[in-house]
Design a protein around this nucleic acid. Structure first.
Lengths: 230, 230
DNA sequence: GGCTGGTCTCAGCGTGTTCTCAGGTGCGCG
DNA sequence: CGCGCACCTGAGAACACGCTGAGACCAGCC
């Protein structure tokens, strides 16, 4: 694919790393994984990545050190640091070490993807695509949502959920997949948040318009009809 | 890409360098980075840059020396010098060495971009001199702002913030993006200045006119409506 | 020196958002 | 036809977020 975006993910928690990779791949990124700082340095020097996602806590070098050494070695790819719970010190250290952005764990894939898109966007010539499914329209940059001609106000979660659906119209998502995409990674306890938010969405983008965009696939999950439901 | 503007940023503070690069990229410039004077010389000879941003304090050659040698080597790209404090001597030295402009640290991205635009006179996207969004009008050169027919008085910060919004109408900015764009680079502590200034702006450009131009996108940031809010 | 305008911090408050829970509903299968 | 499970629904608790008013600080100016 032309314009393929290569991302290096440096993260020692295997489960997290794999989840991130899967998420990025689903969004069209190509992700390589590294579990240790030294390994990451080698890979970043060997391959020219478009972005680097860097965990702070690593078994050998910590993320700050990796970032500094990358910069010292003239690797200028944008770096997103993953810091533990809101440690302000971490955040400052990260930016001082030359990171471009930081995220606190836990974070959602959608958020990571959004930031990666922002950081890897070349010149602003390419108008970031507005998602359209049937009479539904969603603009990720302005965070506006329209059903036909009327604008719909959505909360952050509702927006994230709808964005997930609209990026893959027709595809069936399990509740688990939706949790991973639009909620914080590692949200593991049994909960019915997804059901609840699917309902909120329906009440905002379907019901007032007599539409039926979000379908329940019993025993499996949910999907957004390819025609947007009317 | 037609009209692409290439800038060389020579700066040894990694954090600063990376922030500047990101800011320039967001405005449609293409920025290369160099951390040392010698490196900068090599790059400037190899590539024809449209402008060079040059820190005075560098680990090897200082900025003045770099500038002189550039000119000696017939590199005529406009040079903006970054001096530490308001040292008049620096300024004189800089201009004598052949610099075209100078800025005192700390500075805001908005400022740097403005000077780059002035020096290259080739905005990456053709922008009219006066920004217009709905009934809002803002003239970056005269620093005047109107809502409809009546002029509005803004302080420097308020103006910078509004300019940022008006350069990208509709786009959602996080508080951090706004800090980087309209405040000094390196302003990194957690603070609610942005919230406060958004409020000041609203009280000057929205409230008196019964308008609602600046919208809060809860959990994300702020945006200026494409219609200016009325 | 007192005054003014600009910038920024802080703490308290209101409110929308997020999420849980308990009970209801209806589909699908035996 | 009836049972169980999956999903839906309404209500409400907890929380985070952004808004607000007050005031500290500083610089420039009368």
């Amino acid at each position: 694919m032309i314009g393929e975006v290569r991302v290096l993910v440096v993260e020692d928690d295997v489960r997290m790393a794999v989840a991130v990779r899967r998420g990025l791949r689903a969004e069209g990124f190509v992700a390589d994984l590294a579990a240790r700082g030294m390994e990451a340095l080698g890979m970043a020097l060997a391959t020219e990545y478009d972005a680097i996602v860097l965990d702070v806590l690593l078994p050998d070098l910590d993320g700050f050190a990796v970032c500094r050494r990358l910069r010292a070695d003239r690797v200028w790819a944008p770096v997103i640091m993953l810091t533990a719970r809101d440690a302000v010190r971490d955040r400052v250290c990260g930016l001082e070490a030359g990171a471009d952005d930081y995220m606190v764990k836990p974070f959602s894939l959608l958020e990571l993807v959004a930031r990666l898109r922002a950081l890897t966007r070349r010149a602003p010539i390419e108008r970031p695509a507005v998602l359209e499914v049937g009479s539904l329209r969603l603009d990720p940059t302005t965070r506006e949502v329209w059903r036909g001609a009327t604008e719909v106000e959505l909360s952050a979660r509702e927006f994230g959920l709808l964005e997930t659906f609209m990026r893959h119209p027709g595809q069936v998502f399990t509740q688990m997949q939706l949790l991973e995409a639009a909620w914080d990674l590692g949200y593991r306890q049994r909960s019915n948040v997804v059901e609840v938010y699917v309902r909120y969405l329906r009440e905002k983008v379907d019901r007032p318009f007599g539409a039926a965009g979000i379908e329940t696939v019993r025993g499996v999950g949910y999907r957004l009809r390819r025609d947007g439901g009317g």
